[in-house]
């Protein structure tokens, strides 16, 4: 299971994966990648798990600043005196 992706074609494909997943790869490159994925199980797993990784962090709720941060900031910057 833990055998690094090592073939020359796989390594070449790896470089273009972000462009491919972002929809920024040229049509010819997409076709080439998809042909390779049809025959290479290791690369298919990398593509699928990379896509899932991106989906997971893009749907992660963002950390919220503490409620008090605004008041503290306005006070520290002396903006609270005349501010509404």
């Amino acid at each position: 299971m833990d055998a690094a992706v090592s073939h020359h074609t796989c390594k070449e494909l790896l470089v273009s994966l972000s462009d491919y997943l972002d929809g920024e790869a040229a049509e010819a490159l997409c076709a080439e990648i998809e042909r390779h994925l049809a025959d290479c199980e290791d690369c298919r797993v990398v593509v699928d798990t990379l896509r899932k990784t991106i989906l997971l962090y893009r749907t992660l709720p963002p950390p919220s600043p503490p409620q008090t941060i605004r008041a503290r900031l306005l006070h520290a910057l002396e903006l609270d005196k005349d501010a509404p």
Binding site: M1, D2, K11, R44, V45, D48
Partner: peptide
């Protein structure tokens, strides 16, 4: 960043 983990956990 060469992929080593090749299990499909999707």
């Amino acid at each position: 960043t060469t992929p080593v983990q090749l299990f499909d956990w999707c």
